[in-house]
Design a protein around this nucleic acid. Structure first.
Lengths: 220, 220
DNA sequence: GACGATGACTTATCACTGATAACTCACTCC
DNA sequence: GGAGTGAGTTATCAGTGATAAGTCATCGTC
């Protein structure tokens, strides 16, 4: 019987000396493909990955410490793209407030288009090394980009002079809230997604708005 | 060797006729305890649960279809309490806006105090039966309670006359965003949690505020 | 050009997981 | 007192992540 699983490569030629890295790349690619196909990281097994690449399970451990390291490596690749896409969306306009809104839209869209990496990066408990790596590395940079974007709104006088880090954290949690619930509960009777995202951005922007000083009976 | 695992009850007396439900209750209690102790539903195994109760693994399947049904049953119990705690917090004041703020605080606090049930209910992909049960049942009621709370703010003239369902959805995603990120990334350099939650509530409330009609130069 | 070293991988196996089929036991009711 | 059944057990399965130890080809060296 020997179920053929699905791989094309029944067995792959052993890499030459010094070319071990090629297997590592192939493993990442195969894992990503399987994750997208199955829609869940738990659903892809070490054996399935090994089969897809045409190699035996233990050889995976020559390149990754364990399964979660492999999965995380795949997700971190997405994260780099994540940050750059958001930055690009933010740079597509000169108005800082509109820029922030576009960042928010891009964030949600990316999360919905890459639900499993998003889930792994932001919706599962991070511990130890992973926490440090992701948060201090690419994650830290991405968050700083958001803080800067908020600061620009403050500097432009569009937002009250709040603590930019606190405000940025609030913005992040807001867009994450929509993204993550849409991913987790696809069966909930959600309003139109675009309308919801726009509403969330509206609330955030209005909430951080400089209020017109009407209470003091300002002049002119 | 036979590792003793940890249970006290080495074996439990077989239930009498008609008392099968007692095992079901014991299973729920033991599972909840193990979930709290290990902090993760995956970390508690069918065998560990069976051991803790003093029974063999297959007997669990006489009371629950599979492991996830058992876990979900534990979480749904929490959900009932969740809703009632939020309702209670909301009723503790007459001011609808302050009431909404208290609901938000209670929501986040409950999530942080029961991270694993929260994770399972709101942070893992829900499918099929579970989706239907939780969303249409207790979840539907809880959400309706939130919509009502928002509507009261609108009726009181404290919020603009927005779509109450859309606004409630936004409020939910906002408090969920904080809760879920705090659970997932405990190592992130978060601001003070209370300050963050208050800030998120502030933004939401200000964002939904009735703007003083200064642009039209309103009368009186 | 034989030879030890080593990079790249395989074979065999472990401990564990959720789950099922088939059996046993004790009690109840007729 | 025997059939029926509720309540649980024994034995076992297929699959999981992971490891120890072996194989095999290639490289650098003498």
């Amino acid at each position: 019987m020997t179920a053929v699983r699905e791989s094309a490569a029944k067995s792959r030629p052993r890499s030459r000396r010094g070319e071990g890295e090629t297997l590592r790349e192939d493993l990442l690619a195969a894992t990503e493909e399987l994750m997208i196909k199955t829609g869940s990281a738990d659903a892809v097994s070490i054996r399935a990955i090994a089969d897809a690449v045409g190699v035996t399970p233990p050889s995976i451990y020559l390149h990754f410490a364990d399964k979660s390291s492999l999965i995380l490596a795949v997700c971190e690749r997405h994260f780099e793209v994540f940050d750059s896409i958001i930055e690009e969306a933010g740079r597509s306009t000169g108005d800082p407030v509109e820029s922030l809104r576009r960042r928010g839209r891009a964030y949600v869209r990316f999360g919905l288009e890459n639900p499993e990496p998003y889930r792994i990066l932001f919706m599962t408990r991070a511990e130890g090394a992973r926490q440090y790596d992701v948060l201090v590395g690419a994650g830290g940079r991405a968050f700083q980009h958001l803080v800067d974007a908020v600061q620009r709104c403050i500097d432009a006088g569009a937002f009250r002079p709040v603590d930019a880090v606190l405000a940025a954290t609030g913005v992040w949690t807001a867009v994450h809230g929509v993204t993550s619930l849409l991913i987790s509960l696809p069966g909930f009777p959600w309003p139109d997604v675009d309308a919801l995202v726009d509403h969330v951005c509206d609330i955030e922007i209005r909430g951080l708005n400089e209020p017109v000083p009407e209470l003091q009976g300002g002049a002119s």
